[in-house]
Write a protein that binds this DNA or RNA. Structure first.
Lengths: 234, 234
DNA sequence: CGTGCCATTTTGTGATCACAAACTGATTTT
DNA sequence: AAAATCAGTTTGTGATCACAAAATGGCACG
């Protein structure tokens, strides 16, 4: 009994010594790790995520994992089933249509709000990301594509300095990303075409209507067409 | 040491025996309690909420409270400061404008989506809620007004069966409600006018453009005008 | 009288524990 | 042989603990 406590002092496994730094550091590490996995589709929809399993996977105690899972469930990125089990929600036609509608409403709006804050340096960054995307598409690296596509969009949105719309869009991406990963698994990435170059041109010209149109088209083509196709199949 | 455990068995305070029912029941109880307090403005913006304090207040252990606070922080209803302290975020002009814009975009859209699902029975319910609101306004009961106004709007939105837009709007209400409570505290509730009757009429006629207009006007007048006025003062 | 400093208390965080519900799979029963 | 049952394991939940960072309040010093 007593030595159990002293043993606890000597070595609480592996996570404690790594980064004894600031407040809530472990939780943030777990949070960004899980978010990254969701955004690149490394969690399979319908497969349940266990607290202990994920904790062991990340080398931390179950505690911060529990809190992170609750956070992501609150953003509708994960689903807590009535028995307490946590899993990535399955995509349904109704949910898909709603996500599409919300993305078109919010992302076009936020892109326009970001436009005045975007400098030519940002346009150069976006060009670099887009070139990287083109390279990855031919390689068929779906995870890298998803990570870069996310980086492209949020490089624009983040420039707005938004504190409200941006988190809402964040939630939407977490919801559709795991499903899109399964889509790319079926149709491949070679056939993907985006409107990123049109968006960059609109940013360089500070042309708000053109930027809205480019973002809307990027969403409708990249997500809408592919997704509806796959959802119609089974 | 040993009897500490048996004492734990005999009486872990007050919460355990009450509802030994289903999975995660305590967490849901805490969650809805805190949500209710936020939506009726019973938390003061800027005042920090302590885990142990809230736990003692609700008669539960700190555990479920921690998870709930994390959930609400993920919805931007609460803010975790760099020192780990949790508080209701202060409203800023920028945030306010964004919430207003997002509400206009999302709530008009969801109201229209809900319209085909709304039967005359729902219209009757809405009428009853609205009558209740009118009664409370003259009494100056701000908390009751906020609760009923929330009930009115979400009676409409929930009819849509939405799984995506509705949670987004939920997050928005949690963000502006505490601030609006302070607004009502300054200007009173007697001067409040809403467009609920116009909305009910539009629902009875199944007139989508009229419903959009009524919801938009209700948001712009009820929240926009008052809020901008108060934010301009200090 | 104001200001910096230190002891005390409060608070969040991560870890572990005990328990009940749920899942798994092998065995028995019809 | 198919279905039901039962033991064993896994898993989420709530509780408690130990520790460090932070806030608080009182005290000494300028």
């Amino acid at each position: 009994m007593v030595d159990a406590h002293s043993a606890l002092k000597s070595g609480p496994a592996k996570a404690a010594a790594a980064t004894p730094s600031s407040r809530g550091a472990t939780r943030e590490q777990v949070d960004s790790a899980v978010r990254s996995r969701l955004l690149t589709g490394r969690f399979i929809p319908g497969k349940s995520v266990t607290i202990r399993g994920l904790a062991a996977d990340l080398g931390v105690s179950p505690m911060p994992v529990r809190e992170v899972l609750q956070r992501l469930a609150a953003e509708n990125a994960l689903e807590v089933k009535p028995n307490g089990r946590v899993q990535v929600p399955d995509m349904t036609p109704g949910r898909f249509e709603e996500v599409l509608k919300a993305r078109l409403l919010l992302e076009t709006e936020l892109a326009e709000l970001a436009l005045p804050h975007l400098r030519s340096a940002d346009a150069a960054d976006l060009k670099a990301i887009d070139d990287d995307i083109d390279a990855r598409l031919t390689n068929g690296d779906a995870e890298a594509y998803m990570r870069l596509n996310h980086a492209f969009h949020f490089r624009i949105y983040r420039a707005s300095g938004s504190q409200v719309l941006l988190p809402l869009i964040d939630s939407l991406w977490l919801q559709f990303a795991p499903f899109m990963r399964t889509v790319y698994g079926r149709v491949g990435t070679a056939s993907l075409e985006d409107r990123h170059k049109e968006a960059i041109r609109a940013i360089e010209r500070a042309d708000a209507p053109a930027l809205r149109a480019a973002i809307a088209a990027d969403i409708a083509d990249g997500m809408g067409l592919l997704g509806k196709e796959v959802l119609a199949e089974p």
